[in-house]
Nucleic acid binder design. Structure first.
Lengths: 249, 249
DNA sequence: CGGTACATTGAGAAATTTCAAAGTTGGTGG
DNA sequence: CCACCAACTTTGAAATTTCTCAATGTACCG
């Protein structure tokens, strides 16, 4: 199992601890999808084929490029996206530590989108066949997987609602709330401030706006004392109001 | 197996033939997802729990309401959608004859969205456990299912790109091309005209515009001799140009 | 010090929505 | 067969949201 200590260009990694090479050492192994459902069970070391690193802003996978396994992000944030010919691109989802890049890739090797590292990222590829076999033998594992896949679909559906039906400010608020909720679900502390490594350009590509407009809307939220995004941190001053703005259904 | 000859309020059903009660008689059983992958195999009659009808504009399933099986549309068109409190709603996907309402519902009973009949619709519920057992025993079936699920995810991703990055006209063109391609994939004739039961309101809710603006954009396409949507039919006069307008990546 | 990536601001342009009214269509009942 | 009704489509004018272009500001790094 090759695991080079990849030389990061500069220190943007929001997870500053030493980079571990084994899943059992992983800082996130205790409260995350990948480990809770798939690695804690049997033979994690066999299951994991490779672990790799990618620096922030690098592309992890290019669309069309077949993956050599089921990708899981171990550290850092990544984003699935689709690149258009005219230079525009749409971020489809944010992948956080412990998340599958795509749950369905357990069955389908083709990702049909690209993946970019938002921060420095450590990720690994799990053996697709071994994973399927294990799921086949273990009902609990299978339904855990199903829950993850369903969560991905639900997230995509809500994202569609945002893009189709909601104003710039609402989309922004909804994005923030969703990140906060994901943090809470995984047990990460949700102080007034949480780490939020997305640049305004990422936010723009995610919620279908221009970075200029995102900037204006963030300024507005700041002026209204609701929240702020600044230098990799999201600070919420008035959670009730943020929730209300994000309220969807 | 109860199967009432549901009394349709009026004749909007785009499939005018006699309504059959058995899957083997189904007009769509030969070239569609549900039958090709799931019913042609073994004991289709056991698998199918119930068949029901719903008139156009009716809601088939309300969000939150648990489904009594894996829903498949047999005849007519339906749409998954999410209803917002403020009266807006987002159509998530169009479900055509032979499609699962949601492939993931094989594993997860909760649909987390509503389903509306766009035309008169016949649909049935397949036994979830029986389906899973069958998939477990039959690898081909499992990978067929995976292909369907992946196609759904891919469709959602492209939908996101449309809503986030593309202009009204482009979204419209993309929608038309996608419907045409689905028709072609299922072997339905793609004459210059195809049946297209979506109202402008549906189109608007699907691609995130106002019905008024949809109307204007359709008028524009009509004026430019590209295509027309009228009284339940989509007529394409200049497919090359339509494809170009829809070109995404 | 210079460079790169990122954030902010202003002004004008473009896309889309809103509101309101009028035109169509198809089904229903007299 | 006609009148009516409901659902749907079309059109116009004005308001609003968002984008584009362009310039300036800021932080960090080598």
């Amino acid at each position: 199992m090759s695991l080079q200590p990849f030389e990061f260009g500069y220190q943007t990694n929001i997870f500053s601890g030493p980079q571990s090479s084994s899943c059992t050492d992983c800082a996130f192994s205790r409260n995350n999808a990948c480990s809770r459902f798939l690695l804690s069970d049997a033979s994690p070391q066999q299951l994991r084929k490779t672990a790799r690193f990618r620096a922030a802003r690098q592309t992890v996978i290019h669309a069309g490029q077949p993956t050599d396994g089921v990708l899981v992000v171990c550290e850092g944030w990544a984003a699935r996206f689709i690149q258009l010919r005219n230079g525009k691109r749409q971020l489809l989802s944010i992948v956080m530590p412990g998340d599958f890049v795509s749950a369905l890739s357990v069955y389908e090797p083709d990702l049909n989108c690209s993946v970019q590292a938002l921060t420095n990222v450590k990720f690994c590829a799990l053996d697709r066949n071994m994973l399927r076999t294990q799921m086949q033998q273990n009902m609990a594992l299978q339904s855990a997987w199903a829950r993850l896949a369903a969560a991905e679909q639900k997230a995509a559906d809500l994202h569609l609602v945002d893009l189709g039906q909601r104003t710039a400010t609402e989309r922004l608020a909804a994005l923030f709330m969703r990140i906060i909720q994901r943090n809470e679900q995984r047990g990460t502390a949700t102080e007034p401030s949480i780490q939020f490594p997305l640049k305004q350009q990422h936010i723009a590509d995610l919620i279908g706006l221009t970075p200029v407009h995102v900037c204006r809307m963030i300024s507005q939220l700041r002026a209204r004392k609701v929240c702020d995004v600044r230098e990799g941190w999201l600070t919420v001053w008035n959670r009730d109001e943020l929730e209300q703005m994000a309220a969807c259904r």
